[in-house]
Design a protein around this nucleic acid. Sequence first.
DNA 1: TTTT
DNA 2: TTTT
Lengths: 153, 153, 153, 153
Amino acid sequence: MAGVNKVILVGNLGADPEVKYLEGDNTVANLRLATTEAYKNRNGERVEQTEWHDLEMWGAQAKIAEQYLKKGSQIYVEGKIKTDSWQDEQGQNRYRTRIRVLSFTMLGSKPDGAGNPSAPQQSTQQRPASSAPTSAPKAQEMVSDTEDDDLPF
Amino acid sequence: MAGVNKVILVGNLGADPEVKYLEGDNTVANLRLATTEAYKNRNGERVEQTEWHDLEMWGAQAKIAEQYLKKGSQIYVEGKIKTDSWQDEQGQNRYRTRIRVLSFTMLGSKPDGAGNPSAPQQSTQQRPASSAPTSAPKAQEMVSDTEDDDLPF
Amino acid sequence: MAGVNKVILVGNLGADPEVKYLEGDNTVANLRLATTEAYKNRNGERVEQTEWHDLEMWGAQAKIAEQYLKKGSQIYVEGKIKTDSWQDEQGQNRYRTRIRVLSFTMLGSKPDGAGNPSAPQQSTQQRPASSAPTSAPKAQEMVSDTEDDDLPF
Amino acid sequence: MAGVNKVILVGNLGADPEVKYLEGDNTVANLRLATTEAYKNRNGERVEQTEWHDLEMWGAQAKIAEQYLKKGSQIYVEGKIKTDSWQDEQGQNRYRTRIRVLSFTMLGSKPDGAGNPSAPQQSTQQRPASSAPTSAPKAQEMVSDTEDDDLPF
DNA sequence: TTTT
DNA sequence: TTTT
């Protein structure tokens, strides 16, 4: 049956995106995103808890990430949870969970301080493949996961 | 039946929050939030479309908004849709739709807020009333809609 | 700047969809959705509060709604808030807020009881226009807002 | 900094909840949830892809799950991603990602639950601990993660 | 391991 | 009325 698998994150990148150019003109970017919550415990002390997320972007989106995102960038992310499983050499089941990014938006008006045209406000979003940008998108534009593959997104 | 009524917004304030102190030590803040999307139309021209939202915050949350938010502030908002209806003088049905904010987070500040004490990272979120902050919360902390009323949130 | 305007609803339809066939082979469906929350007030009494939402669907999505949804149907909806404004005859500003549906999913295994093949599990979701179904989608499939217009979604 | 870590799922349970009663009158429930998406691949063939999620509920919420949820139940879930990491006997880093449930709603029941007392509409949601139900909640009511611990939710 |  |  048709289900829903949706993730919404706001956080900061722990490192620059790692981008790989694959055969067939495909591109994938892997990013580490930290989401931190701060709260008071029962003693009234302030506690911070950080969760790290493995993000995966494909195609034009990966290239935008490479161009505009870097360590410390604050982004809004929408995506879905994907867990890969396999057996390791000891025959044990192993799992790795990632967030497949469907759209993202750069946050903060001046990600890198004023006067930095190379790191502009940037965002991506679901767009039909037919209208995918043929070149790197301008700043302040919605760009999306436009992979022309069999994947539902 | 138990339903879901959830709104997620990222945008900028069009003006400073309007805060009213009501009898019974209650506080309400009204804010106007712009969410803008940019896309290319079928002619490849860049088009911007802005939607304006009326936000409503109560109690401690309203006071935090008054203290930390101002015209231009970029925030992440989570809330629910509420539509009031009434009859005007002509006997016509009138409607007004607002977003009741359940939590919000200031965006765009430095991750550690260093060197900018006047606009610190700030955020609010659902917290049990019993652990509500008795004073304005510190920067970079989760604060929430903690109204001790009959409302479900 | 690129913003986020997202609505997530789970509720029941208050009436059958109202579908209009427009010129240019366009179709629009309007639906009324109730989201109800139940909670206990400070006297421990159970209180129910229902919010009504005006939903708007276009194109293939509207046709699916017409075919599969009816009064009482429980659906999951994802969309964005849109507020139209105009001046009425008295020169007063009037507003109407609707939810532009981007995807929806029928909930409940047997919306109409077992043995009712005409009201199957059904769901819609963002899909590139190029892969839009050319006929009404089968049950249990993702279908989406595939309008080939200038709109970003 | 204050971030956002939010998961929204709609799916079916692969098995009955596994509930453990811990010392200190604490309860935890573990559930497996399947979210399935169906789409057409580039050959026009219908493809189904199922993702499995490990859900974790605590306290009153866990008891409600035990009482009302079972294999096959369709639920709406809201929560956050948590990844535990440790070193295994071979000294390798191991990870396990789960969804900490903050609220959930049973789907597919009749809006008024009439005539089905054994599987009523049921739902949970964030509520201040002070107003937590002391006994199992009635059908069609919002119930929530009301753990009185140091965790922010 | 669910659902249709 | 915001933002870039």
